[in-house]
């Protein structure tokens, strides 16, 4: 089992009242598709996941501070609030056949492959901290507030140890991007 630390930018889009129908087209113009709540979608330049109704998190390659959010603010003016979480959430990637079993040592969700297959996303709490989980073909992506990232990382290392643990790696988010055009 391998735990990787992921470098990425995070931008949240939150729909303003009455504009839910307008946002998908705007998103498409930005090169991403917006999945329904509880799902993660893969675009050529981003992972997009939603764990709250009418809110989406865009995971993109790191850029200059605030640049991603600023571009989306422009696109979404009047339609959605755009919030930069690039420094607010940390991302970890768990790969390996035992990852889901190891997470059951602290996660209350059913992470069995049939219950939480790739493409699914969920917000929950794990090891007493808020987490967002997204199932990707490569493994599980875990987002957690930056201030508790070290705590969660330490806990994950402990939970994963009996299942064998590969050395820590740094992963760029673009390795998860696909080419299925939105």
């Amino acid at each position: 089992m391998a735990i990787g630390v992921c470098r990425l930018d995070l931008t949240e889009l939150a729909v303003l009242r009455g504009h839910a129908a307008d946002l998908p087209a705007v998103a498409r113009s930005g090169g991403v598709a917006l999945p329904p709540t509880g799902r993660v979608a893969v675009s050529a330049s981003a992972l997009v996941l939603s764990v709250r109704p009418e809110r989406w998190l865009l995971l993109t390659s790191p850029a200059a501070a605030g640049a991603g959010a600023a571009a989306w603010s422009e696109r979404c003016a009047g339609l959605a609030a755009v919030i930069d979480h690039s420094s607010g959430l940390a991302a970890l990637h768990l790969a390996g056949p035992s990852a889901r079993e190891a997470l059951a040592r602290g996660c209350r969700l059913d992470l069995a492959m049939d219950a939480f297959p790739p493409g699914h996303a969920a917000a929950t709490s794990m090891a007493q901290v808020a987490t967002i989980l997204a199932a990707l073909p490569s493994g599980l992506l875990i987002l957690t507030p930056a201030s508790t990232a070290r705590h969660l990382h330490e806990w994950l290392m402990g939970a994963a140890r009996p299942f064998g643990l590969a050395p820590l790696a740094e992963i760029t988010v673009s390795t998860f991007f696909g080419h299925n055009d939105p």
């Binding site: 709540t37 509880g38 709490s125």
Partner: peptide, 11 residues
């Protein structure tokens, strides 16, 4: 209705 069935502790 948004997340599915969850433990009380999440609420």
């Amino acid at each position: 209705p948004h997340c599915g069935e969850r433990d009380e502790t999440e609420f």
